[in-house]
Amino acid sequence: MLRFGGDNGMALSKEQIAQRIAQELKDGYYVNLGIGIPTLVANYIPAGINVVLQSENGLLGMGPFPFEGKEDPDLINAGKQTITTVPGSAFFDSAMSFGMIRAGKVDLTVLGAMEVSEQGDIANWKIPGKMVKGMGGAMDLVASAKNIIVAMMHVNPKGESKLLPQCSLPLTGKRCVKKIVTELAVVEVTENGFKLLERAPGVTVKEIVEKTAGKLIVEGDIKEMQF
């Protein structure tokens, strides 16, 4: 039995956001998971579905963290965490890694964001005036991935919506996000703006509308997410 109610009453926890995104996985997918909530998606791959995780520092077939004492400094993921490989894995250099991304071989990319616009623009690498850490592989991924799902909170710590008419922060990529899963909702990016697909259990459409600054299309009865 899943318990709902993270810090925001009935909203999903970060693990539950990851669990909902995992439902988007299909058998045989090659998937790139970003740092943060996206990484957690690997813990919820549905039974009977095989996916191959790509780590852009040069690995297909990323496995779980190693047992204590088995860490290998030569084997890390793009978040610089020690990891393992699964049977059938392959190593390659960084140019080939981004080559397979650019060529559209990776089926799904899941990444975090600071802002997403109703056109599907994404901002997740820079806050002017504060420290700039760099974009890493994010710009390459969003420019080429066939299917991009953003995992993020619906509002920022100040309570401001992160689903906007236009991004205010420097962009990572334009018109690339296909779907957004937050603690409140599953939202699709369409030609006409955001479209509400599902709501978190117990969360009202009204709350989602209030917390979405960009245009949000609500059609018919919005069903609850199923877990």
């Binding site: 963290f65 204590e68 004492g69 860490e71 400094p73 610089k80 965490q81 020690t82």
Partner: peptide, 12 residues
């Protein structure tokens, strides 16, 4: 030295 930036492990 091969320092590890993020040591992430599972307990045995």
């Amino acid at each position: 030295e091969k320092r590890i930036e993020q040591r992430t492990v599972k307990k045995v």
